[in-house]
Design a protein around this nucleic acid. Structure first.
Lengths: 233, 233
DNA sequence: CGGGCATTTGATTTAGCTCAATCCCCGTGG
DNA sequence: CCACGGGGATTGAGCTAAATCAAATGCCCG
């Protein structure tokens, strides 16, 4: 748990690195937050924690998860740069989920004690928070309809396709690095490790993707991938 | 599609009937909305509609659903009195889901052309909208983790338990009327009609619930019901 | 080179789906 | 008052996709 320098040190020349400043409307709010970084695997919020916080992710990837009574981890969402974590309100009761860094993460943390005032002072921040929360809701609803009916193949294909969309101009346009292990994919997609692996090799055998090794995926046939993802969803 | 009288006719003496006024902070915003009622089965928003709206449900129950490529309806959420429907922003693109009345519904509709102004004038409304959206997000995440891992029995038991919690002081405290048909329950829980039916009779045979007929459920053993709902979730 | 971990592959089991038949509740009309 | 019909709900009999159990393989890193 390392606290970094204050976020108001994110000057204009650093905009590219400081997600929260990417949207000009959010610039004033950055001054009210504290800069913080997390190592991969570090926990920002623990389920049951009474203390809540609200933060905006600038760099890196986080997962929102919880352990079900059977002891199985369920991942209910991923958080990408620009996304907000936690809640801005004090009345929400204890946290219901863990929030853990999947990679090195930097974020701009807003203490809950002052955030309501910050929102009152900067309506654009509240607007942005609402807008992003609504977008998030749409995302989760899409996951929901996928989990309700889609086959294992469609879940895996859909995850790869969505991950590819999230990483635009990389070096190799058709090679992506999955941010999750097979086990984490299984926890996110409501499958088992074995089933995820089997569907990956199925896609490989069909010539839709290539698996160069590690967590890398080469998308050889984007159309076929999209079609597989839509199969029953 | 019947437009009723304006919502600002909901005077204080009618508070009990007018959900949007239940929260005092929302009273001023009611004046900016239009009262509208829907018959059971009527569609408020159709997926693909370019026109969006934002409304607050005062009475009745709605479902948010969409038809997947396989032609199967998936219900991604239910909306109860006090919940907001739609989105307040114009930039969101076409609607992604149908929103349909499951019972007679009355709501207070805010035209999207004026809602941003309304929110600017009444910060409490925006606060409320954000707060409810966050709560909704939590709800959907709970559904998500249920759909990811829970058994058919747990899904059905969980739905009955949650429905029971939503209807507090009814006449018979232990008898509830399910708002959904078996088919709709199946669409909501990601199961088939037959499986829902089988789990219901399983709960009945185990003495956990009674099925007096129609959509009624008598909860005979609330603890056992809660336990069945938590089984693997 | 070897140990530990993630991933893949294989064999078997099972929960829930599909297909099919029957039942039950209720409104309608003779 | 009772036969008729129709839609939802229940029950039954296989079938299948994914889980589970088990083993082998590959890979990273000391």
């Amino acid at each position: 748990m390392v606290f970094g320098k204050s976020c108001n040190q994110c000057s204009v020349r650093e905009t590219a690195l400081c997600g929260v400043l990417a949207d000009a409307a959010l610039a004033p709010m950055a001054a009210h937050g504290t800069q913080r970084s997390l190592a991969r695997g570090e926990t920002l919020i623990r389920a049951g924690d009474p203390a809540r916080l609200c933060a905006n992710i600038q760099r890196g990837l986080m997962k929102i998860s919880h352990i079900n009574p059977a002891g199985h981890e369920v991942i209910v969402g991923l958080l990408w740069p620009g996304d907000f974590v936690g809640t801005p309100f004090l009345d929400g009761g204890p946290a219901t989920h863990d929030v853990v860094a999947l990679s090195a993460v930097s974020l701009c943390v807003f203490p809950q004690t002052t955030i309501e005032r910050t929102m009152a002072d900067h309506p654009a921040m509240e607007r942005q928070l609402l807008s992003r929360t609504l977008a998030e809701l749409g995302q989760v609803r899409r996951s929901l309809s996928r989990l309700a009916r889609a086959t294992a193949l469609a879940r895996v294909a859909g995850f790869i396709a969505e991950t590819a969309q999230r990483r635009p101009a990389a070096a190799e346009p058709h090679v992506i690095e999955l941010p999750l292990s097979r086990g984490e994919m299984a926890d996110l997609l409501g499958l088992t490790i074995e089933t995820v692996s089997r569907q990956m090799t199925r896609l490989k055998t069909a010539g839709v993707i290539g698996l160069p090794g590690g967590r890398q995926v080469m998308i050889q046939d984007p159309d076929a991938l999209a079609e597989a993802a839509d199969e029953l969803m």
